[in-house]
Design a binder for these strands. Structure first.
Length: 415
RNA sequence: GCGGCUGUAGCUCAGCUGGUAGUAGCGCCAGAUUGUGGUUCUGGAUGUCGAGGGUUCGAAUCCCUCCAGCCGCCCCA
């Protein structure tokens, strides 16, 4: 049997209905915040991600699907979308458009990681970028926007963490200070932390072992390494969030991220997700455009929601009503079947979903109507064609009435 | 990429001190007299027991390899 590729999955009904629900909700909120959709290619030149995301990140080092094209150029399946959006912004001179560019996207990304629940090699992100301003008010609005999306899909019990990682320079200084400090205290910590102190000091901050917490609390905070401007920027972001009555926790340990992050970073987690508990993450990337060759600065901030994970929490938190069938038409015989095609078209024009049965037996068609939870079944046989009166059965109550063609359409028009 | 656990009908699973697959539940199909579903009853189909190899007279059951999923690491969405 030919199977799907590892880490990639089929999204079947009824789950696909939840995906559509989530995407429709996101689009509504994006529209309210005046974001418009951008669609970028799934393939980009490898160098875009190498430079944009950062040569030293795990994503670029070991997780990209990179291959040589027939002409010898190196192409990569996008592992994230911010770099592509900025590339497009530069290429099409969107900085010449009036005001901010507020763009959103929905689509698949690819990273070759070991698959797990909530972690797939082809996964989907719903994201947005606000490019062209470094105002802290934009940071707060972007965060307000993601919170609004979560509310719109019915998720309330999440936690929002915000932090500021300052400039690249202050992050480097912080990393040094952390390493120096860890040299002394790491031996007293758990096995994992001792390893991380060597390989990736920032990861120590994520340790969940209770005994290590007192030590971690005494480690230096990145917030103490910010310069004056970064500190003020972060203060105002928090102020704007409070004005908007958005509940958040400052988490100085939230320092991970791609190389391009600067100043504000944020993350939202949800308990129902297990170890892959981050449902979305984002941050500011004021220098990314220049890194990618823009002559003019284009400070921006964005986020991406892990749609797979969002769908999981939506599925866990509420029972969504699946797509309903409005009318099942049961024609009795070939004449009726031909006759019903026009009838089906007329009912569909009322924006109702219609299934036109092709089975020979009425009993069988009634069964199918029932299994698909049709609201009505319309029975059309010789009697009905001759008399131009149709039998409409309400499947919930079992009531049946005989209606003229016009009365039938009127009856179906109102719920 | 590393470690652990798991893999039997469409789904959930039983069988696993080796003897050649389950009247299991749900679902699916058909019938209970020719234009009426949901309940009930009756009957039926479907599995190369994840794949390949090995041990054995004989393997779903033991061993090896591979594949996939899940959990942890790592990373992140």
């Amino acid at each position: 049997m030919i199977q799907g590729v590892k880490g990639m999955r089929d999204i079947l009904p009824p789950a696909s209905g939840v995906w559509n629900f989530v995407e429709a909700a996101a689009r509504r909120i994006f529209t309210r915040f005046n974001y418009r959709e951008i669609r970028t290619p799934i393939l980009e030149e490898t160098v875009l991600f190498a430079r944009g995301v950062g040569e030293e990140t795990d994503i670029v080092n070991k997780e990209m699907y990179t291959f040589e094209d027939r002409d010898g150029s190196s192409l990569t399946l996008r592992p994230e979308n911010t770099a592509s959006v900025i590339r497009s912004y530069i290429e099409h001179r969107l900085d010449q458009q009036p005001g901010l560019q507020k763009l959103y996207y929905i689509g698949p990304m690819f990273r070759r990681e070991r698959p797990q629940k909530g972690r797939y090699r082809q996964f989907y992100q719903i994201g947005a970028e606000a490019i062209g301003s470094d105002s802290p008010a934009i940071d707060a609005e972007v965060i307000e926007l993601v919170v609004a999306i979560l509310h719109e899909v019915g998720i309330r019990d999440f936690e929002l963490f915000v932090n500021s990682v300052g400039s690249k320079k202050s992050r480097a200084r912080y990393n040094e200070a952390l390493q120096a400090e860890l040299k002394d205290v790491a031996p007293k910590m758990c096995e994992d932390c001792r390893r991380r102190a060597q390989s990736n000091p920032l990861r120590v901050l994520d340790c969940k072992v209770p005994e290590d917490q007192p030590i971690i609390e005494r480690l230096p905070s990145i917030l103490d390494f910010l310069d004056e401007e970064d500190r003020e920027h972060f203060r105002r972001v928090r102020e704007f969030l409070e004005d908007r009555q958005i509940r958040f926790t400052v988490n100085p340990r939230l320092v991970r991220g791609l190389d391009y992050y600067a100043r504000t970073t944020f993350e939202i987690t949800h308990g129902a997700l297990g170890s892959q508990n981050a449902i979305l993450g984002g941050g500011r990337y004021d220098r990314l455009a220049e890194t990618l060759g823009s002559k003019t600065p284009a400070p921006g901030i964005g986020f991406s929601i892990g749609e797979d994970r969002l769908v999981m929490t939506v599925e866990a938190s509420q029972a969504l009503n699946p797509q309903r069938l409005d009318v099942y038409i049961a024609p009795m015989g070939d004449t009726a079947l031909r006759h019903c095609a026009a009838l089906a078209r007329e009912i569909r024009e009322l924006d109702l979903s219609v299934e036109l049965g092709t089975d020979r037996k009425l009993k069988r068609m009634m069964e199918l109507a029932n299994k698909q939870e049709a609201r009505f079944t319309l029975i059309v046989g010789d009697n009905e064609i001759v008399s131009q009166a149709y039998t409409l059965k309400d499947m919930a109550s079992g009531d049946q009435q005989t209606l003229s063609r016009q009365a039938l359409l009127d009856r179906l028009r109102r719920p």
